[in-house]
Design a protein around this nucleic acid. Sequence first.
DNA 1: CGCGCTGTATGACGCGCGTCATACCGGGGA
DNA 2: TCCCCGGTATGACGCGCGTCATACAGCGCG
Lengths: 232, 232
Amino acid sequence: MTEPVDEIRGAIEAATSLGPLTEADAYELARMATVAESARGESIWLSGARADFFGLVLSGFVKMVKGTPAGQGVTAEIIGPGQVFGMLGVVDGKGCPLMAQAVTAARYVRIPKSVFQPLYARNSAVREHIAVRSTSRLRQAFDTMALMSTGRVEQRLAAVLFTLAEPYGRNAPDGLLIEVPLTRQDMADLAGATVETTIRTLSRWQSQGLVRTDHRRVTILAEKALAALLEG
Amino acid sequence: MTEPVDEIRGAIEAATSLGPLTEADAYELARMATVAESARGESIWLSGARADFFGLVLSGFVKMVKGTPAGQGVTAEIIGPGQVFGMLGVVDGKGCPLMAQAVTAARYVRIPKSVFQPLYARNSAVREHIAVRSTSRLRQAFDTMALMSTGRVEQRLAAVLFTLAEPYGRNAPDGLLIEVPLTRQDMADLAGATVETTIRTLSRWQSQGLVRTDHRRVTILAEKALAALLEG
DNA sequence: CGCGCTGTATGACGCGCGTCATACCGGGGA
DNA sequence: TCCCCGGTATGACGCGCGTCATACAGCGCG
């Protein structure tokens, strides 16, 4: 069994989101970080709460949820193993406006912002790396905005599946398996729709042979046919 | 009459979006930049086109439009005097995925990316400044995403007005005047709705005394009542 | 002046999808 | 074992809003 600090350090060094850290920096972070676990559905932090740490997922999946004025939440993104979440606040000192919640049972590293901040201030390569990632996410955000404001639910849902398939898709014998276990409610939150409509849409797709769901995991069976819906 | 280069330099130094430039840097940029004009409705660059410059608005307004797979466009943001647009591509070298189009007759400074890039690479204060602004826009983007995916048109439209009022609102005798001249179509694009629905909604608000429109400029008469719609 | 074009406005119609209600299934706990 | 609860599924209903059609006012132009 490896020492926890080594496991953490390994994960930190492997996380491309953090950028090019020196060995000493990685060790420093690892030394001050801790591993935490959350059960499925558990909140890691609440929206608006000034979390004093950000997270690096070791296993499982975490979602970032934005509360709407209307009350219900919309999921902004799904964070998987090797990805960090809640680091936005590190850049400008403001808190993260999104709620973090475990989609599945999850293990993750808690890295105190107070430890990372000086490193961020000192290491310009890390700053640059994070800046580039921010702009890339901004591009994605524009795409999502455009989709959400014009599309029908069917299109949004299809887009959600493809968005998830990009980082978390795996080729399976009969199609493209999305490795994130999501309930219909989870997908509805991603698409900005209701559970019922999501269920209906997926049922229809299933009967048309476009997708298959198995233990909360979706497999895209007919990629081209599903992609065609996006043009609608 | 001031020399063009001085007018440009003044605008560049005043633009907070560009960050803390040294005098020499500002002069260097100004020397290589040019002033351009666009008539209302004119495209400054097309989506996907690799513009080799970004812009700094001197007067008038410019909108950034994201084309949707479905065909029609959604306006991501409105850029006013003193604001820059299309600078995203400078950070990571990729092009700007949004179309830039003049909402009104507009004058703007064209700053070649090839001139700004080395400055960006050299001046870490500028990098940091831009990074902070990116994260702030990312936050906004999350808000907009949440709004677009859940809200009714009425709510989205109200949100659009308040979003515009923040940078471009001015206190007028009878309310809050939004200084951007927008057609109903423009507002529809911002809200992700159709012209007809936008017209109907604004007509209703007008008859209820919530807003007034005058020469394409909207005045919010009953701020609290309008804000109440957001909670719906 | 009439003509065309753009922007605003209003009505009719239909469908997508949100809302509410009901039912079934599987798993974990007393 | 039964019960309960979270997740899935399906039907009925209604309304918001997108779509299409029509009308009119302002404005530049030949």
